[in-house]
């Protein structure tokens, strides 16, 4: 990591005034997301996961950082690359793995799979298989909060690819004219499936699009969790105090391919290596915590062990669970 990057984080850790407990919990959640995803790769290779899945390794800081300022009552909408968002919002890992294995103990009773994990009880309104679909849904959830005076804020996660969908533009406009309590959080991981954002838009940053709708926007380093926390906290506060939506563009990188079938021909191995080596969000956060005496190497090793154990337990839970019975094919279509 460059000294410049370290400097920013060291400054922020003092400025944000975070509790040791919170910092450790966030470190743990980031590790947990990575272990979760690494484990899925193995399960997939073993033929235990059906269909496809979209891994978020390398994007742990955006998920955990953006969810940090949210309360349990606040809501998120997520994407096809949503495992990290779910874990960061408090969704149960056991039920997530069970869903990925298609078991009846999974969040969707085995009917949704990776792209439809949702947990209303912790404010997770669901991953979504349609790019940009979470934005209008989140806008509606924010309208409920405003109309019923419920006080909650909605944070919509979406990728850079979603910002060329009409639903992105229409939702930003609608949320702005209605002054809704919502944060539009773009994880710009540089690629929509294979399409590089540079080839798909003719603008320097996605954040400039906020200006078209009168929405304050900024571009941040999405691999620095402290910068994510700072920007999201301000946006959530703005929303909570009836000051309307914010657009955040968090720059990050998708380590894996789009899905399991992706041979990654559209980018170089050198580019991937560089991001992994010098811009790993977990390593960066760990360094800051070590340098500021928040945790020790031993603590980190312990967090790592604990996460591995939690994932092992989740896999065990999922593998020992039953498959749904065939008669559930026709249930839950209508209320």
């Amino acid at each position: 990591m460059s000294n410049q990057l370290k400097g920013v984080s060291n400054q922020l850790i003092n400025e944000l005034n975070l509790e040791k407990h919170d910092l450790t919990k966030m470190m743990y959640d980031m590790i947990l997301i990575r272990k979760f995803e690494e484990n899925l790769k193995q399960l997939y290779q073993q033929g235990k996961i059906h269909g496809t899945m979209h891994l978020c390794i390398g994007q742990e800081a955006t998920a955990v950082g953006a969810c940090f300022p949210l309360t349990k009552e606040d809501k998120i909408t997520s994407t096809h690359r949503g495992h990290g968002h779910s874990i960061a919002k408090g969704t149960d890992v056991n039920k997530m793995v069970a869903e990925l294995l298609g078991k009846v103990t999974g969040y969707c009773k085995g009917k949704g799979g990776s792209m439809h994990i949702a947990d209303m009880e912790v404010g997770n309104l669901g991953a979504n298989g349609i790019v940009a679909a979470g934005l209008p849904l989140g806008t509606g959830a924010a309208l409920t909060s405003q109309m019923k005076k419920l006080g909650y804020v909605v944070l919509c996660f979406f990728g850079d690819g979603a910002t060329n969908e009409g639903a992105f533009h229409e939702s930003l406009n609608l949320a702005s004219v209605w002054n809704l309590p919502i944060v539009f959080f773009c994880e710009n991981n540089l690629y929509g499936m294979s399409g590089s954002i540079k080839e798909m838009t003719n603008i320097e940053s996605i954040a400039v699009r906020g200006a078209s709708y009168g929405i304050p926007s900024e571009t941040i380093d999405g691999n620095d969790i402290l910068e994510v926390i700072k920007a999201t906290t301000a946006a959530v506060e703005r929303a909570r105090h009836n000051n309307g939506p914010t657009l955040i563009e968090a720059n990050t990188y998708r380590w894996e391919g789009h899905s399991r079938s992706d041979a990654r021909k559209y980018r170089t191995r050198e580019e991937e290596k560089e991001w992994k080596k010098s811009n790993d969000p977990i390593e960066r956060f760990k360094t800051v915590l070590l340098e500021n005496g928040i945790i020790t190497e031993d603590d980190f090793a312990e967090l790592n062990e604990k996460a591995i154990k939690q994932i092992q337990d989740a896999v065990e839970f999922a593998e020992s669970s039953e498959s749904p019975s065939l008669d559930t094919l026709m249930t839950d279509i209508y209320v």
């Binding site: 909408t77 679909a133 209008p136 849904l137 309208l143 409920t144 939702s171 406009n173 609608l174």
Partner: peptide
Amino acid sequence: AISGCAVGSAMT
């Protein structure tokens, strides 16, 4: 947007 907004408000 308005159709999705209707869905999002209905589910909440």
